[in-house]
Design a protein around this nucleic acid. Structure first.
Lengths: 208, 208
DNA sequence: AGTGATTTGAGTCGTTCGACCTATCGATCT
DNA sequence: AGATCGATAGGTCGAACGACTCAAATCACT
């Protein structure tokens, strides 16, 4: 029997193409959603075998939707689909409970294979895939910031000043500046603007 | 006879889906390219009726490829495809000589229609489409920066300081600061970091 | 037990930034 | 023809920033 999938992607074009491509591999698209709210509704309605979700959604984050989905329907595995294999998103996707993580670079056959595996009950994020992905992300020369440094950079990227970051993290402005200096070193940036842009390029932080 | 198209997109998945979708509308994909160099080679080899090109390419910019393509093969119209209807890219695409500009939001039928129109010789960027797109971009609450202001913001986003921007634009640092002040007003930002991030969100500038 | 990384905090010093104000010149619009 | 807008340029001033150096506590890994 064909695997029944719910497609979640904000681009009608991509959904359309994906549906036709997957059907070649005997995977049936039971429904399509262009946003997170619809996705949540349709999962309840259609009870698909697998949800294939793009991380970039208009109303909410694909990761946020995944979290809610996993909470509400733990029996339905979610396969996350993304343009880039960026560190931050992969980490969050795993934390959110995604069953698999696929980059849009791969072939339709590969995605179909992953969907079937996941549908067959291999709900755990396959270690091989996770390792490959993480290593791929690292290969890209990603300078790894410490947890605290990432927090600081994310807040800076949300428009906070040094003092505001300090207030929100309950540390002194001086410490914040020290973290920033460390970030500049690791990212080879000379100011906060460059640091934020580097962080975005390397996928360390995200645009909100 | 079916229209012969060359697909240019770095994601195999998207190409695959697009090909199957387009075939439903009697549009034949004569070839696929994952990068700009391959695209240029295949146009010469295959002589397609239309090139359907994504703006985001790994080796070079879709806009740059389009420019070279238009220069080398002015008889082959290029349809630009993008995720977002961002102001900056639309402007550049028009300047590069693209025959049409399509957002990935629209349906397969719409794209197929545009391809057929373009193939039929309506090489000029259809004014209606351009207008619609531009208005759509405006509707999104896009604060419109002047050409000069966009240049300044783009350079800032590439890591330049005020003085460096000034040097690259052959103006004084003072004028650069004035442009920046104007940008802050229009984008409701208080510093360069926020301005760059707003610019990215609104699609006024691009991450390079 | 010791080495190293992380987190927190501090001081100094020169540079840069951003806000506010004015002004000229040319183009475009009404 | 007058008005508006954009690009250019100048000035002042206080606040924020970034570079450099130092130090102590904590935790992990060896």
């Amino acid at each position: 029997m064909a695997t029944r999938v719910l497609l979640v992607d904000d681009h009608a074009l991509v959904r359309d193409g994906l549906r036709r491509s997957l059907e070649v591999y005997k995977i049936h698209v039971a429904g399509e959603a262009g946003d997170g709210a619809t996705a949540l509704r349709l999962v309840a309605e259609l009870d698909p075998d697998v949800v294939l979700m793009d991380v970039a959604l208009p109303d909410m984050d694909g990761v946020a939707v995944t979290k809610q989905l996993v909470a509400a329907h733990p029996e339905v595995p979610v396969v996350m689909l993304t343009m880039y294999g960026d560190q931050a998103t992969i980490g969050e996707a795993i934390a959110a409970g995604a069953a698999a993580y696929v980059v849009k670079d791969c072939t339709t056959a590969e995605i179909a294979a992953v969907i079937d595996e996941v549908a067959a009950g291999e709900t755990a994020l396959s270690p091989a895939l996770a390792e490959t992905m993480l290593r791929a992300a690292h290969r890209g020369g990603v300078a790894i910031l410490s947890a605290r440094e990432r927090e600081v950079l994310q807040l800076i990227a949300e428009g906070s000043s040094t003092t505001e970051v300090a207030a929100r993290l309950y540390i002194t402005p001086k410490t914040t500046k020290n973290h920033l200096a460390s970030i500049y070193h690791k990212l080879e940036a000379t100011d906060r603007t460059q640091a934020v842009l580097q962080g975005l390029r390397k996928g360390i932080i995200r645009l909100r």
